[in-house]
Design a protein around this nucleic acid. Structure first.
Lengths: 241, 241
DNA sequence: CAACTCTACTTGTCTAGACAGGTCGGAGCA
DNA sequence: TGCTCCGACCTGTCTAGACAAGTAGAGTTG
């Protein structure tokens, strides 16, 4: 029935429509902000049903390539944002994916009483107990990250008894808590005196610092400050519509 | 007909199914890797058609919350990566969204001959002409970004004649080229002598540096080095399944 | 025991309609 | 002129089926 009755599986209709529209967008056939063909036009052009055309358009919309307005039409997106998925992986996984060796040194592991600021960041009342670890992660014996982490005991009661030279905190928490939401900020700053010593860099060497908070549906699981020596670590990513 | 015949618009069926499944995932009713209800089961449970259930599952899959395998079933995703969409907006837009004033100082704007490295990064032959601009962006008269940019003349011939105190290079290029792909890396480092002077910071002040390359379908459009004073600029984002 | 077949179940894709709800411009009216 | 109303057109959602294609396990056969 369909054109392509050959060996390789025929391209689904909705994919054909998507490809047609993407191609046109790449060629500026519909410059940003202008009107694109309506569902009805595409139905007629491709000889397929509206559900199928609708699926193609809906997917393009969720990819951010077009904007759709009920009652008005579909429009080529301005594409004035370059957005890309920044994936934050477990550092151990990342190092091993590069074929390198990961090692962790635990410098601190204790139950402490939260100060006012920390307690409010974790959604606890002041001076309630929190778990605190400070761990340095090495890639092939070169220090790559200093991880200062506070954990809400209610979310991971077993946390404080782990041997973090064997399992990373990130991995442990992924396995034993129901992650629901995460927030992060990334900035550049100088390390503290202690961080510089642990990372074996000078205090004047700039660092990439990520502060991350993760949540279950109702509570804060953990607050982590991850400090990376500037020259040794970089985030990278790609955007491809 | 449907339960909710009230004032506020009823929640669409596919959204109800999504909410039900998300809730269950958050409560670990289906721990990572285990089997979730099949389409047929959800059809029976909610009394709706398979297309509608399928839409809910498809969207959860594209959000990375579940894995689906034809002939086998749907499974709760491992969720062992925190991934989030890092959106890189035009700086002027970002500043104005904060309700602040944007201003740009153009310090350099010329046609130059590309050196070997630069030429290869732009996909040009050595010593071909390239456009080069250096612009400092201010938020409320405080320098926020030093933008060093090389542009492929073939992609944006009019670039070099623009008045970049009136339109940012990012915005100009978005409007006049067909962006197809972008790559970036983010790292922390010290500014060059010149950058420190333009940003009115000391050479020892750490900076967040983003290097970005953008492409049309076939060629490199531009290579930009964006330097931000560490304390004044941070990337932030959120992940929410 | 190994290889094959058959069957039940799963997801993937698609159709031809339907109704709802939103937008916009023009016709007609005050 | 300014107003309202109506109809054309658009997207949003949904149904009740259909066939295709992949998987896994049970049963059969050599």
């Amino acid at each position: 029935m369909r054109a392509q009755d050959s060996l390789l599986p025929a391209e689904p209709s909705f994919a054909r429509v998507k490809r047609y529209l993407k191609q046109g967008l790449a060629e500026q056939r519909w410059p940003p902000g202008t009107r694109m063909p309506s569902e009805a036009q595409l139905v007629a052009q491709f000889g397929i049903s509206r559900m199928t055309v609708g699926r193609a358009l809906k997917e393009l919309q969720s990819e951010g390539l077009i904007d759709r307005v009920q009652g008005v039409g579909s429009f080529a997106a301005a594409l004035h944002r370059v957005s890309s998925t920044l994936t934050i992986r477990d550092l151990q996984e990342e190092i091993e994916a590069r074929g390198h060796r990961h090692r962790a040194e635990v410098h601190h592991q204790a139950v402490e009483r939260a100060g006012r600021d920390l307690a409010s960041q974790l959604g606890l009342s002041a001076s309630s107990p929190v778990f605190h670890t400070r761990i340095v992660h090495f890639e092939n014996d070169q220090p790559l990250q200093c991880e200062d982490r506070y954990v809400n005991p209610a979310c991971a009661p077993g946390y404080i008894d782990q041997d973090f030279s064997r399992i990373t905190p990130t991995r442990y928490l992924f396995r034993h808590t129901a992650l629901w939401r995460a927030q992060y900020t990334i900035e550049s700053a100088l390390p503290t005196f202690q961080e510089a010593r642990l990372l074996r860099i000078r205090r004047a060497d700039p660092c990439l610092i990520m502060v991350r908070r993760t949540f279950t549906r109702d509570a804060v699981i953990t607050l982590a400050r991850l400090v990376h020596p500037g020259g040794r670590y970089q985030l990278s990513g790609e955007f491809n519509p």
